[in-house]
Amino acid sequence: MGVTMDGALGFEVSVADRVRAIIAEQAMLEPHDVTPGAALSDLGLDSLMLVETLFALEEAFDISVPFNANDPAAGRFDLSTVRAVIAGVEGLIAAR
């Protein structure tokens, strides 16, 4: 089971669902199309959309995602798949 947080309406929304919803909004897709195994590039996220997605994640979870567009590997934040992003966000929340 993933980490859960209080949603705005009082019921619990999992981090995974919120991450998927954020990615879906940036990629202009429905959340159910953002499957855990999907690669971000396959969802049509270009470099600008990716930077906006990271900003939205940082704002939503009050975290700081280490990512330099010049050297994506340097921050050790795995952006390969939706699953990897969810795990990364959960890790940053736990370390908060």
Binding site: V51, L54, F55, F67, N68, A69, N70
Partner: peptide
């Protein structure tokens, strides 16, 4: 900073 293109 927001653009994530700055060198550290």
């Amino acid at each position: 900073e927001g653009l994530r293109v700055m060198a550290p």
